[in-house]
């Protein structure tokens, strides 16, 4: 009997809270703050990515190889190709020109990777703003793109 009275009492108390909660919610809703956009926003992650390279051209090579290796084949094909590439990485990492890299991938039956590199170089042929191509940096950008593609596919297919 006492318990039941107590329950009814606390139920009634809860009911009394409803108008209070409604007022709180209404206060929240009516005090909407308009989003302000900073005049000088913080530096974006992408800017740091681009600035890793002395020229935007090399960033284009890195992202071009990355997206073509991932995009030109199916998920399973890309994973298989890139896994094989990582197994051979010690031999690949020392190759210091795009020609040597392309030859390596062709000789080791990794044709889609070789094609992705060739397509990227063709697509960027007219975009070397400095006019002085550094073939070592070009090869480095290709390797960064490839290893990023491997990381990305492992992240997307794991689990």
């Amino acid at each position: 009997m006492i318990q039941s009275k107590f329950r009814r009492h606390s139920y009634n108390q809860s009911l009394k809270l409803i108008p209070f909660l409604t007022v709180v919610v209404m206060m929240f809703l009516s005090s909407c703050i308009e989003t302000r956009f900073l005049e000088y926003p913080e530096s974006h992650r992408l800017l740091n990515e681009i600035q890793k390279w002395p020229d935007e051209y090399y960033w284009n090579i890195e992202t071009g190889v990355f997206s073509r290796v991932l995009g030109n084949s199916t998920v399973e094909q890309s994973k298989s190709l890139l896994t094989q590439m990582v197994q051979d990485w010690d031999a690949i990492v020392v190759l210091d020109t795009s020609e040597k890299l392309i030859n390596y991938f062709q000789e080791h039956n990794l044709f889609p990777i070789a094609e992705a590199i060739q397509e990227t170089l063709i697509a960027n042929a007219e975009q070397e703003s400095t006019g002085e191509l550094n073939s070592w940096l070009q090869a480095k950008a290709i390797k960064v793109g490839l290893i990023n593609a491997y990381d990305e596919i492992m992240k997307n297919t794991s689990g």
Binding site: L46, E49, E56, W59, N60, E62, T63, G64, F66, S67, L70, A123, N124, Q127
Partner: peptide, 13 residues
């Protein structure tokens, strides 16, 4: 006419 840069942006973000 920076299509390769555009490709880079749309595969990095």
């Amino acid at each position: 006419d920076e299509i390769q840069f555009l490709r880079g942006v749309y595969t990095s973000v």
